[in-house]
């Protein structure tokens, strides 16, 4: 179980990205974080694996306070938390295989990993991950030769190498077309359902949120303004919508449950998988 308590992040330039955020994520949850760009979604996800150090507050994961971890303890914690990025963040010049193997770095001794000596079990694990993502035949290509959807699958395969208990997905489908978006989210869903991996994912499109999430929190200006279960998100009211996206935001269509939201950085496009 992941428990966020009074999390606050103030950047050096004074920007308040998170303001006293508290919520709880039970295991095996597919939690979707929604909110406008700049509402603090990315900061929140990065605080959980400490790519960003929170200013105040606690993050308890199975009773361990992540915010207090240092050095090796921090890295041991990180290797159990996978992360998927909007821009995939693959090392473009390295092969798919190297990118996937990089997911194992947290488990490998420094010297062996730098000289590219991964043990047999790790190689097998990589094969399995590639197979699961359906990109076995791309293994020896350079990462930048792959299409966006394939690159994101490499990104997920990389997190699988970590054998994660939790995957943080920072707008994993924002750079992909609608069909690919569903494909990637279905992979995440299967990891969530079959492997029992908790997923915290930020998304833009409400229809995707309604389709995949098991629970939702809405952020606005760094504050939690909405919390709901799958049932509640299907019945999101206009008032709730506006509390997240602002008074000027307009929902596409009128019927709740089959709606895509319009927001600033993505053209509101109706998506049917």
């Amino acid at each position: 179980m992941l428990e966020i308590r009074n999390l606050t992040k103030i950047y050096d330039d004074g920007t308040v990205a998170l303001r006293n955020v508290s919520f709880t994520v039970p295991d095996r949850e597919f939690l979707v974080v929604i909110g406008l760009s700049g509402s603090g979604k990315s900061t929140l996800l990065r605080c959980i694996n400490r790519l960003i150090d929170p200013t105040e507050g606690q993050i308890l994961w199975d009773g361990v306070d992540i915010t207090a971890l240092k050095g090796d303890d921090l890295r041991r914690m990180r290797r159990q938390i996978g992360m998927v990025f909007q821009q995939f963040n693959l090392v473009k010049r390295s092969t798919v295989m190297t990118n996937v193997m990089a997911g194992r770095l947290g488990y490998s001794p420094t010297w062996r990993s730098i000289t590219n000596q991964f043990d047999e079990a790790d190689r097998k694990r990589a094969q399995t991950a590639l197979k699961r993502m359906g990109i076995t035949d791309q293994a020896n290509k350079r990462a930048d030769e792959l299409s966006g959807g394939q690159q994101q699958r490499v990104g997920i395969a990389r997190t699988l190498m970590q054998e994660p208990k939790l995957i943080l997905a920072d707008e994993p489908v924002a750079s992909l077309d609608p069909v690919l978006a569903h494909s990637i989210l279905q992979h995440l869903e299967s990891l969530n359902r079959e492997d029992g991996i908790t997923i915290i994912c930020s998304l833009h499109y409400l229809d995707l949120v309604q389709r995949y999430s098991t629970s939702v929190i809405g952020l606005r200006d760094g504050q939690v303004v909405y919390q709901g279960t799958k049932k509640q998100i299907l019945r999101m009211t206009d008032a709730e919508f506006k509390s997240i996206y602002g008074e000027e935001a307009e929902r596409m269509g009128g019927i709740s449950g089959d709606i895509a939201a319009d927001d600033e950085d993505s053209a509101g496009e109706e998506v049917t998988g």
């Binding site: 694996n49 159990q80 996978g82 770095l105 420094t110 990389r158």
Partner: peptide
């Protein structure tokens, strides 16, 4: 990529290298 490699639990040297 630096962020991504850090997120896997890699240490400083591994991050620089990868």
């Amino acid at each position: 990529p630096v962020e991504a490699i850090q997120a896997t639990g890699a240490n400083w040297l591994q991050t620089v290298w990868y």
